[in-house]
Design a protein around this nucleic acid. Sequence first.
RNA 1: GCGGAUGUGGCGGAACUGGCAGACGCGCUAGACUUAGGAUCUAGUGGGAGACCGUGGGGGUUCAAGUCCUCUCAUCCGCACCA
Length: 811
Amino acid sequence: MAYSKEIDKKWQKKWKEGNLYRFDEKKPGKKFYTLEMFSYPSGANLHLGHWFNFAPADSFARFKSMQGYNVFHPMGFDAFGLPAENYAIKTGIHPQDSTIKNIATMKKQLEEMGATYDWNYSVETCMPDYYKWTQWLFLQLYKNGLAYKKEAPVNWCSSCNTVLANEQVINGACERCKTVVEKKKLNQWFFKITNYAEELLEGLETLDWPEATKKIQTNWIGKSKGAEITFKTENKDIDIKVFTTRPDTLCGVTYVVLAPESELVEKFTKPECQKAVEEYRQRTIHLSEIERMSTERTKTGTFTGSYAINPINGVKVPIWISDYVLEGYGTGCVMAVPAHDERDFEFAKKYQLPMIQVIDNREGTAELPYVEDGILINSNQFNGLTVEEAKKAIEKELEKTNSGKETISYKLKDWLVSRQRYWGAPIPMINCPDCGLVPVPEKDLPVLLPYDVEFKPDGESPLKKCKEFMHCTCPKCGKDALREPDTLDTFVCSSWYYLRYPDAKNEKEAFNKEIVDKMLPVDVYVGGKEHAAMHLIYARFITKALRDMEYLDFDEPFQKLVHQGMILGPDGNKMSKSKGNTVAPDTYIDAYGSDVFRLYLMFGFSYTDGGPWKDEGIKAISKYVSRVENLIDKVLKTNYKETEEVGEAEKSLLYVRSNTIKCMEEDIGIFQFNTAIARSMELVNELVKYESSEKVNKKLLMETIEDYIKIMSPLAPHFTEELWEKIGKAESVHKELWPKYKEEDLHLDTIEIPVQVNGKLKAVVKVGSQTSPEDVKEIVKKNTTIAEALKDKTIKKEVYVPKKIYSIVVS
RNA sequence: GCGGAUGUGGCGGAACUGGCAGACGCGCUAGACUUAGGAUCUAGUGGGAGACCGUGGGGGUUCAAGUCCUCUCAUCCGCACCA
């Protein structure tokens, strides 16, 4: 029977019956935890992106098994989140119902892929047996001072009366009703990830992650060294603290700027400036942070009417507000040095604020704004110092008067985890009128998410309108109290799921310490690079926090990280329903079978780059698969003129066989599936050639075919299983180990050395692989083309890189 | 704006640490087989008649550059409430 979907089904059934992929921690072999980022069950079907992430990663897991590891390869569902809720608002179908249905479909499809997941180790984050422990995690963070409440702005649509996610804000307006979005402050929960800023940064060095991803995290953490400087003001009680990376320019400060939303603004605004300040603050409400950070936008701002005093020279400078200062970074106030900062320069020019140059280049010809290194001028006792010297000297001087110190600032902000949404894990906290904030006792977990809730947007957290949910008794004093109505960001659910998998059924704890210490860290984590900053940094933070609470004993959750690329639509754009350029895997699976589809995904694209979908390529793989089938059928029924000799033809076959095993081993190990499959094609080409030889060494031929089936088995699990059976094997090919190649088969008697004259390839000479450099030289010189090229020339230089190249320079 | 990438034949993509650019495949061309061919098999295939020229473009380092340095152009992705 030719390979088809039917063969997939036949083997999927047998594997399931035989429990082929059941994980058993007692199995021999070193543990190997390989993990793909779990999927979000937003639509009913697995899309191409899922396939491209999961199918090759599954092949990798299978490969690791063949190498003798005891592979742990779980899969689950990140099931809470906004899309299910929005879908419910649109269709009236409850998020729980649609999510459970989607999960069932996706699970079935994952099985059709032929993946090795053991569903006994799985999580669904929206189920109480999981989110009970998400809530437990929240409580541990709270107990350890890592969860706290503070006011923070949200995107607010006054027409829909609801909080909007950033993705629901299009060009500053609500995606539904186009109302201009404003910022509204709400009291919300935060996780103190900033406590771990330094460790999250340092830990990157120990990880086998793509360099680009490490850079993204480094920039996200955004460490910068500088100084915090205190400016006294006319208002004796209130100081302004600024953070600057350039304390050396302190004498060049001509004004200070506060973020418009800063609480200090009210304290400094003089009555005559009140109106302008209020208007300006109103305008800022509508801007996104990205807009505010843009240096292209014209700077705007307004004067508060008050003045601050420069601590280094006592100069009085005006206090302004401007949206280019962000409340969330540094102290939310900056000292402006227009002569040496481009943004300040522009701002000062626009509002005709003075500029004082305090740094000059060595020639004394610097043009403003001058942001390079240089020598201090106009800075009293600091004149003549270099920038580096001045930084230290000025910090030291400020320390004397207690008005400044060296400090480190991070861009990393605490993690806002409150969501005014329904479809999420309820935050396990209670507000008691007498006792204040009281955590739900662990024995009362989970705080169940009620099913019957009005979650259509009307200005309040949906749970707030559910009386049965909200009303409870205070665990401390027993009086009536109200629950926290917000739910947790789904990133909280996904920040610890990899810890739950190995002990997924534990009813007493989130996970058993011994088990996670044994199974973790994840050896290889595969997922999209869009998670480079958020999910991956949150998960690292949670791991470190749990380590400090002694729930586990390792520092990093994911030792190696691989990002798969993205498959684009045939038009080269990101696939989207609205563009109508989506490609549905199912039609291809039906037509060609899962393995052809898997092989095409692996062969047609670089795994880390992805690229636009092309229909033609899949036919080529289908052809390849039948070519192999035809070959094996033919070999099985042909009566060959047999030989037992190992001659030239056999040596060539042995070489290709060993080379293929070696290269595929290397390539699959580093997720280079396209080149691995290319090598497998070379072996098939060689087999076809050999099989048509006059005399055939049948034993060698069959052994090579067996090796071929084995090394293809991680990549095409159903197809190879069928072939394995065809050649008469009773057991599953997936119980086989990866074959060993023979070093001596790879040894060639003669090698080819390219010869360059003046950098240009002139000839290729054949030499014995053991030929000495002196003899190679002689052979090169005897070559007629080379001799011709060297005629009447003087040799100026000769370079021989053994076994690689021979290079001659003449004049 | 900030941050991160990418750019190689007609196409998808190879090229380890600087060492014969274009592996493998698609497509194309020719031939074989066939009642037929959008099936299969065999051979060829970067460009150019050629010396030579070729990895987005310009400069550089080197015996040798897709790979290193420098400038530049184009495209894609992320930016903290999508997951």
